[in-house]
């Protein structure tokens, strides 16, 4: 039974991986892009929103990781990081954006709302990553030694904790950025189709793919965009993993 399950599961996974690779390479090399700049526009939108959301969430996330007890808040942070990003996006779209529109006239479909929703939902995952980065072995002893030497908390923060954990912090931020780049439901819920007249890659895939002719130029462009988006996020994840590994090595030394 186990062998059958294993062979079946591995076969399914392999089939999916091969189909992704085949379709992606087919799309990349077999035909030209139907509309020049279209894929770049989609990717640009994804990166712009992902960057904006990750940057906006950074201050709160780093503050939370620095000034809370990881033993006490760890499970809460981990739990909250599992919350789908569509939750803050839905609240923004249904409650805050209409409320602020009636109050100060900010349009409900403003791209800023998408960035805000991404940032709101991105605090917990970044916080989690930063907490892991700051949980360096030996950092507690360094802090005690620094306090004994009369160094103030601010000095410990800027002179010891942040420099020691900088690679892990960057890795946590990169993971959040990668997650934001591929986020689709936030844009669909908050912006409803357009961000400043430009679609993100995920948005384009969800809206256009069902309408695209199988094997047509738009269909191929969408597959190229999917491949680029997937590759981009894999690269970010691997970069984050490399940074994590280098931080672990530095901590051991």
């Amino acid at each position: 039974m186990a062998v059958v399950l294993w062979i079946g599961g591995a076969g399914v996974l392999s089939a999916m991986a091969v189909s992704l690779a085949w379709l992606g390479f087919h799309a990349l090399f077999d035909a030209g892009i139907a509309v020049p700049g279209r894929i770049a526009g989609w990717m640009g939108g994804s990166i712009f929103l992902g960057m904006g959301g990750a940057l906006l969430a950074f201050p709160l996330a780093i503050a939370g990781a620095l000034w809370t007890d990881p033993v006490r808040t760890g499970p809460l942070v981990r739990l909250c990081s599992a919350l789908p990003l569509s939750v803050p996006a839905f609240l923004v779209a249904m409650r805050f954006a209409p409320w602020l529109e009636s109050l100060v006239g900010v349009p409900t479909r403003h791209p800023g709302w998408a960035v805000f929703a991404l940032a709101w939902g991105g605090i917990a995952p970044q916080w989690l990553g930063f907490s892991r980065a700051l949980a360096l072995p030996g950092l507690g002893r360094w802090r005690e030694a620094a306090l004994a030497l009369g160094i103030p908390e601010r000095g410990i923060l800027t002179g010891i904790a942040l420099p020691a954990a900088r690679r892990g912090i960057l890795a946590g931020w990169m993971r959040s950025f990668a997650r934001n780049c591929g986020e689709t439901m936030v844009i669909l819920l908050v912006a409803g189709g357009t961000i400043g007249g430009r679609w993100t890659a995920g948005e384009a895939l969800v809206i256009e793919l069902p309408k695209a002719e199988l094997g047509g130029s738009l269909w191929l462009d969408l597959l190229r965009a999917a491949l680029l988006l997937g590759t981009w996020t894999v690269l970010l994840q691997l970069g984050a993993a490399l940074l994590d590994r280098s931080q672990s090595r530095a901590a051991v030394q």
Binding site: G182, T184, L205, V206, G230
Partner: peptide
């Protein structure tokens, strides 16, 4: 290493594979 990298692939990309690849 690869599983860590692939775990970050957005869901919409896998949906695209499911819709487009399996549509064939």
């Amino acid at each position: 290493w690869a599983s860590e990298g692939i775990s970050g692939v957005p869901g919409v990309v896998w949906g695209c594979v499911g819709a487009a690849g399996l549509a064939y």
